[in-house]
Simulated scan of single mutants.
Amino acid sequence: MNIVADLILAGALVAVWLTAGLLADSLPSARSAPALRRRAGLITMLIAAGATVFVAIGIVTALLPGQSAAPAAALVPAVPALIVLTAGLRRMAQVRRGAGAFATAPQTPVPPALRAAAAHPLILVPLQVTGLAALLSLPIAGGVVKVPGADLAGIGITVVGVAVLAIGVRAGLRHSKLSVQALAPIGRNRPRVPVNSR
């Protein structure tokens, strides 16, 4: 077993995906549109780095002699990472393009609709769940938890499941609140249609 190599690979997964999840949480609170664009670009680069680490795990474990627990550990965050790569990355690109429209005005505050788009649950939830799942992969890579039939793995999966539910509810409420703020000016400025009185 190459425990040191497995822990290095799993640690790289944790570092990249946890950082991306934490940055995604601060995405809607950017002070200006260019700052939002920079954060979205940085998160996109971290997602690409996270996908590269998944590929590197397969290559490195194939080249090293002996058995490795890194591929089994990488399976834990692979499912939410797949959602990030399919749905979240597309929404992140939309946010980046939307913020890029204000590139010529660096002091422009973030429009409410763009802030609501940055807080969309399909951006935040899969990134943070991938970071949590990557944390769960560390004891698997270290050989502390054996994947098939381990009681500790069941407890870990239950804790992550509760955390996923909490993250999902929080992200949904946050997106709802920002969506209402984006639509509020439309409701206030709606022109009144005069009623013909006879």
Rank of each mutant, 00 (worst) to 15 (best):
L63R: 10
A99V: 01
T158E: 05
A10V: 04
I140D: 08
P65E: 07
P139Q: 14
A99L: 06
V169N: 07
A134W: 09
V144L: 15
V193K: 09
L135Y: 10
P65I: 03
F102Y: 11
P185L: 02
G58V: 00
V147P: 05
L127V: 11
L114M: 04
A133W: 13
T104D: 15
L132Q: 01
L89Q: 14
R31H: 12
L89I: 11
V169T: 02
D6I: 04
P194A: 11
R31V: 03
R170W: 03
A24S: 13
H175A: 08
A101D: 12
A40M: 06
L183F: 08
L46E: 10
A184T: 12
R190G: 06
P106E: 06
A153G: 07
L114T: 15
G161C: 06
A24E: 13
A103I: 00
L165D: 10
R91T: 06
L63F: 10
V162Q: 05
S68K: 00
A49I: 02
G172R: 07
A87E: 14
I123F: 13
A35F: 00
V195N: 12
P106W: 04
A62L: 00
G187I: 12
V129L: 03
V180M: 15
H120T: 08
S32C: 05
R192D: 15
I57N: 00
V14R: 11
L178N: 03
T108C: 09
G41N: 10
L165P: 03
V53P: 10
L23R: 11
G88M: 03
P111N: 02
R39I: 01
T130R: 01
A141E: 06
P121F: 09
I47Y: 11
A133C: 07
I57C: 01
L9M: 05
T19V: 11
L173P: 01
P185V: 02
A35Q: 13
T52V: 05
G142F: 14
V95A: 07
V76W: 13
Q67H: 01
V60R: 07
G161E: 11
G187K: 12
V4D: 13
S137K: 02
L124C: 01
N2M: 07
P80T: 13
V195F: 15
N189S: 09
L89E: 10
A81K: 11
V14I: 11
A62N: 00
A150D: 15
H120S: 12
V110D: 13
P121Y: 12
Q128K: 07
A72N: 14
A72L: 12
A48Y: 05
G131R: 04
L114E: 12
D6R: 04
R96C: 12
P148Y: 14
A103K: 00
T61H: 02
G11P: 10
V159R: 03
L124G: 09
P65Y: 08
A134K: 04
A105L: 02
T130S: 08
V110C: 09
L132F: 12
P34R: 01
G100P: 01
A73Y: 00
I8P: 00
L7E: 13
S68C: 04
A119R: 03
V4H: 13
